[in-house]
């Protein structure tokens, strides 16, 4: 007789299901109909001037906060990138877009939303992000080791099953009624912002490829600082620090050149951060 070595965890495992439950909304949003054909554009911004500027300020800024300010500044010239789909294929462009900043919290990233209504000035927004960065409670990751393999009780299993079914039915039902669908999509903006900014530089990530889903139209990712060697003015090769940025945008909606213009606007603000102050 053959022996079987099939033992595995499924979502009824208590520790795994706790993690998955946290992501239930995420899972629902990541179904195929919600995917957008997201294209990724990468550009680098020189950091010399940026470093000098952000450290010499009265309240020094971190990289994330500086990029958030530049992003807010670029959104003033093109608000399309912060628009949201309302769930019925209509595109809504907000006057004062909120920016969601991704914060690492164990297994799932938490989004800190800075309201665009309250902080409409890029520098105010940056100061707010810098100030509240440390207030986000970090959650210790769920420990996964072979030792945590335990069986869930039948009651817990049934309870979880009922919860999942309820959520799934609710979602299907919402889709039929425009007001409910609209309400559901409205919550996205307050929970995750009109446009999201994530900084992966703290994890040492040097290249990234992201995806996009409705209702968002674009996302900005910041990677680890890089050194670029290029010929200088006198013909000598010089090394200069650059900040790689990746813009993920809805390719079916936004033309490539418009995305390039937007990303170069962010890069422009980071190259010469004085322009953020000049506008005051």
């Amino acid at each position: 007789m053959r022996t079987f070595e099939i033992s595995f965890w499924d979502r009824d495992d208590p520790s795994l299901s706790a993690m998955l439950d946290e992501r239930v909304d995420m899972l629902a949003g990541l179904r195929v109909p919600n995917f957008a054909a997201g294209a990724n554009l990468k550009m680098t911004a020189p950091m010399d001037e940026l470093n000098r500027w952000r450290k010499n300020r009265k309240h020094p800024l971190g990289i994330t906060a500086s990029v958030a300010a530049a992003l807010r500044w670029a959104l003033e010239s093109d608000g399309l990138f912060a628009s949201l789909f309302d769930g019925r294929d209509n595109l809504l462009v907000p006057d004062n877009p909120s920016i969601g900043v991704g914060v690492d919290a164990g297994n799932a990233a938490r989004i800190m939303v800075v309201s665009g209504e309250e902080y409409s000035d890029p520098l105010d927004l940056a100061d707010k992000i810098e100030a509240s960065k440390r207030d986000i409670p970090t959650i210790t990751p769920v420990p996964f080791s072979p030792g945590s393999k335990e069986k869930a009780s039948n009651f817990a299993k049934r309870k979880r099953w009922a919860k999942m079914v309820k959520q799934e039915l609710q979602e299907r039902f919402d889709y039929l009624l425009p007001p409910l669908q609209k309400r559901r999509f409205d919550t996205w903006a307050s929970q995750r912002g009109h446009i999201q900014l994530h900084n992966l530089g703290t994890h040492g990530v040097q290249e990234f490829k992201g995806l996009l889903r409705r209702p968002w139209v674009s996302m900005l990712w910041v990677l680890e600082k890089d050194e670029i060697v290029s010929p200088g003015d006198s013909g000598e090769f010089v090394s200069s620090p650059v900040l790689p940025l990746i813009l993920v945008y809805a390719q079916e909606l936004i033309p490539v050149d418009r995305a390039c213009t937007f990303l170069s606007k962010v890069v422009e603000a980071l190259t010469d951060p004085k322009c953020l102050e000049d506008r005051r």
Binding site: A37, A39, N40, K42, M43, K209, V256
Partner: peptide, 17 residues
């Protein structure tokens, strides 16, 4: 055939429809 060389784009990934 898409030309992004003048726009200083150094990486690209696009979807196909």
């Amino acid at each position: 055939i898409l030309d992004l060389s003048e726009l200083e784009i150094c990486d690209w990934k696009g979807g196909l429809v």
